[in-house]
Each structure stands twice: as structure tokens, then as C-alpha cells.
Design a protein around this nucleic acid. Structure first.
Lengths: 169, 169
DNA sequence: CTGATTGCAAACACTTTGCAGCAGA
DNA sequence: TCTGCTGCAAAGTGTTTGCAATCAG
């Protein structure tokens, strides 16, 4: 385990990696995470910092396995178990959202400091398009109100045929 | 395997069962299924008939395991494998829809001859409320149009706190 | 110091698959 | 008859868990 004490509040230093551009500033989100951990009497560890960092470098949806691969490629040795455990904490902290598309695995998406997305999935080609709709959000809140629910999050997946798939028919 | 030849086009006779009221006429949906099977050069078997029947007696969401339990309680011996295989066919035939809520299992819902639902899920109590929104459907079609997609189906899950859960806070 | 954390491997739970015998069409 | 179907048990897979050693606060 690399020796990275409080420095981890800054983005962990890594070698060349997967070539994804950082989408979020690491520091502010890390602060959120640390605050959450403190509130839960949990600890901020180098492993958790690395996992958060790797997640923030991702764009759009990703699977736990992909994150594990990223970490390995960055030269970080973190066990699967720790990644899964941390992903749950990041979710509870409101930094990640877990998305369910199929029954084989779940996906994650960074939500802290980003606009949330919904998905258009092509059932033929597997293409996934992200979109954001204010109308949808309003509709969601309205539906919650009608049932006395307090909205927390939602998932809206549309399955259909992409233009490409339609052409191939 | 009970001897139930073409009679299976009518609802299979079963003993007392879970006490759920049949929601769909069996015959018309069975006709759809048989047509689908014929088109795919697949066969209509007593097992498939029983599974379809059990599914149609269900209301709202159900898990594969629940269906297997229903079948057992009805005194039908059908293997897990056959149930899973048949659920896939029923989906392809447009009779069932598979729903993904969590990463542990998938759920199913009968859609043939029923209005489709979306769900409000309480993250505290696990309560699930079904609702239907024409507005949502229109929004879905509009979003598809914008991206050149041809809509097939969708899933809209809202996670939040039910009135009961809010009180407990 | 003390309780939370980590890695490892085993355990889990749902689902899929290979195969030999059976049975719709 | 000719495929497809069934049940069984084994294999798969993503995820979780128990445990002993380790570490953050």
C-alpha cells in the first residue's frame, strides 16, 4: 500500500493510465466523501482514495470490473472486495449512482457535480445514448407528489432500435 | 408429466393455489404464445402451458423463484431450467417484460393485454407502487424521435421515501 | 489503542448450459 | 421420424462475507 497520508485529499499520483480525461475535480468530491465517512465513523484510506479517483476519471456508465481493471492498469493493487465495498459507500455518499440494465451485473455513474442521465439503449446493437430531460425530472417529481413520496433518484431506460439497427432490418 | 394434449389451449386445471385471482384470460394469450412458437419452429408443451398459466395468475411484478414456488404448490413438477427458458420465450413473444430493479435477480411482469406499469420504490421499506402515466409514454416517444430511435419498451423506476418511511424518520 | 479496513478465499444466489432420454408436429 | 424439449446436475458470474492481520484516527 503506497504511503499517501493526508496528501490523498489531492488527486492520487498515478502513472500513465487508460487515457480518459478527468471529468471532475478530485478535491471537492473527495471532501464530500471524507465528510460522509467522518459522519459514519468510517475511515478514509488510500484504497478508498484510489477508487474514488478512478471512478471520477470515468465518463458515463461503467462496471465494477472496468474500475478494477483501471486500478490495476494504474498500478494500484486493490482487492475486488474493497472495490465493491467502496462503491457502496460512494453510493451512500451520493457520489455514485448504481444503474440496473440487465441481470448480469450493475453499472455505476458519477453523479456528484454532474448532470444526471437517462439512457436510450438499442436492443440490437447495444449502443447506449445518454440524455437528460428536465421534463422527465418534473414528471418524476409530480408523480412522487401524487403518491406522497419524497423523490431520491430515478432510472429511466428506453429500449428501442437505433437508426443503424433500423437500417439493417 | 401430466397428459394434457391440445386441451392446454384452455387453462390447465389446477388444484387450490396461492389464492391469486386470474388477471388475464388464458386462452387469448395462449393463442399468441402458440403463434409465436410456431413462427420460431418451437413446440408447445405442457410445461410451457403451465408456466404461462402460472404467470398469468400473477399480478404485478414477480420473480422467477416465486413462479417456481407457485408451480410447485399447484402440484406441477417443472424444472428450474425449463422455467427460465420459458420465461425468455414469453418475453420474446411479447407476453412478459423483464424488469431490473437490483443486481440480485430480475423480475417479470405480464404485459399482454394489460396496461404497462412503472414503479415507485421506497428505498427504506421496499414498498413498490405501480403507476401508469400517459405523459411519460409521450415523453418517451418524443425522446426517441429526437434521436432517431424506434421505441420498443422502457423502464422507469423512481426511488424515494414512502409516506410511512418519512414518518419513521 | 481500538475499532474499522484490507485481502484472500470461500460462500452465495440467480441464471445458464451440457447432455441423454423423451416427445411434439 | 426429426427436431426440439425436459430434467438433472454442473458450471458460470457478479457480488458478498468471514476472518486474521493491519492501519487510521
Amino acid at each position: 500500500m503506497p504511503s499517501t497520508p493526508q496528501i490523498l485529499t489531492n488527486r492520487p499520483k498515478i502513472g500513465t493510465h487508460a487515457g480518459r480525461q478527468p471529468m471532475n475535480a478530485y478535491e471537492p468530491v473527495c471532501a464530500v466523501f471524507r465528510k460522509y465517512l467522518r459522519g459514519q465513523h468510517l475511515k478514509f484510506t488510500p484504497e478508498r482514495a484510489m477508487i474514488l479517483d478512478a471512478a471520477l476519471r470515468r465518463e458515463g456508465l461503467f462496471e465494477a470490473e472496468a474500475l478494477i481493471a483501471d486500478l490495476k492498469q494504474m498500478g494500484h493493487r486493490v482487492s475486488r472486495a474493497t472495490v465493491y465495498r467502496t462503491l457502496n459507500h460512494l453510493q451512500d455518499a451520493g457520489i455514485l449512482k448504481q444503474v440496473f440494465f440487465d441481470n448480469r451485473q450493475s453499472y455505476f455513474e458519477v453523479i456528484a457535480g454532474r448532470t444526471t442521465h437517462d439512457y436510450l439503449i438499442c436492443v440490437e446493437t447495444g449502443e447506449v445514448i445518454e440524455f437528460h430531460s428536465e421534463k422527465l425530472r418534473n414528471l418524476r417529481d409530480q408523480i412522487c407528489k401524487e403518491h406522497g413520496y419524497e423523490p431520491i433518484s430515478h432510472q429511466f431506460h428506453i429500449f428501442g432500435l437505433s437508426p443503424k439497427a433500423q437500417k439493417n432490418k
